[in-house]
Computed example of a mutant assay.
Amino acid sequence: MPAAAFTFVRLKYHSGDWDAVDERMPANLLHSLVQYTKVPVDPKEKVVALDSPELFNYPFCYLSGHRLVQFSSTEKQNFTQYVRNGGFVFVDDCNHDIDGLFARSFEEQMRQCFGSSALKKIPKTHPIYSQFFTFKDGPPNTGFELNGWGDDLVHDYLKAIEIKGRIGVLYSNKDYGCEWDYDFRNKRFLAEDNTKFGVNILLYALT
């Protein structure tokens, strides 16, 4: 683990609505890291522009939204270089929709950055599902899927772009960001803490 405190970085990109989603989610996941692990954390989320060289100072980034994703040339160059250099980006479609605007436009950006076949479904046996907590059935469902939000499908998979055998881009249509977008003090009312898979994601990115 890194000696420095872990920083939850949200990526700011010029298109879309990167700043209109999941405001409480980062604090919730950071609380879970403190609760379950010994990873030192910076308690405040940090926003970093995708076209900024500051991006390369952090091992983990989060990107989300509902609308068009269309990177500028500098954003595309930075995203590609960051991932190829070992960075980890968790991308979550807040529409929960495999045919929605965010999904279609983001997947097109990935084709342009990494090739047409780079983004692939990952198996339920992937190490990310047993990184800390174990999820034998693959990615846990969200309430938005089960209640018929978005495309009215339960997605039993996540997609990823792997670089040298490790995930560099983890891509979800399950809307985890909204699932975890609540005050961490309300977790005590849940039968099961639904942020545990988020802990797996963060630890995978850091190890």
Rank of each mutant, 00 (worst) to 15 (best):
M1K: 03
A5C: 03
A5T: 06
K12L: 03
Y13R: 09
V21T: 14
E23W: 13
L30W: 04
Y36V: 13
T37W: 14
P40Y: 05
V41R: 00
K46G: 06
V48C: 08
S52D: 15
E54V: 09
L55Y: 04
F56E: 01
N57K: 13
P59T: 04
P59N: 10
Y62A: 00
S64R: 03
S64T: 14
H66D: 04
H66Q: 10
L68V: 15
R84I: 08
F88D: 06
D92P: 15
D93N: 14
N95P: 00
D97C: 11
D97N: 15
F106K: 05
A118N: 11
K120S: 10
K121S: 12
K121G: 05
P123I: 01
K124Q: 06
K136V: 15
F144E: 12
L146E: 15
H155D: 15
K159P: 01
I163S: 05
G165S: 03
L170D: 03
S172E: 08
C178F: 06
C178L: 06
W180D: 03
D181Y: 00
R185C: 10
F189K: 09
A191I: 14
D193N: 07
N194P: 08
T195W: 04
G198P: 11
V199C: 12
N200M: 12
L203S: 11
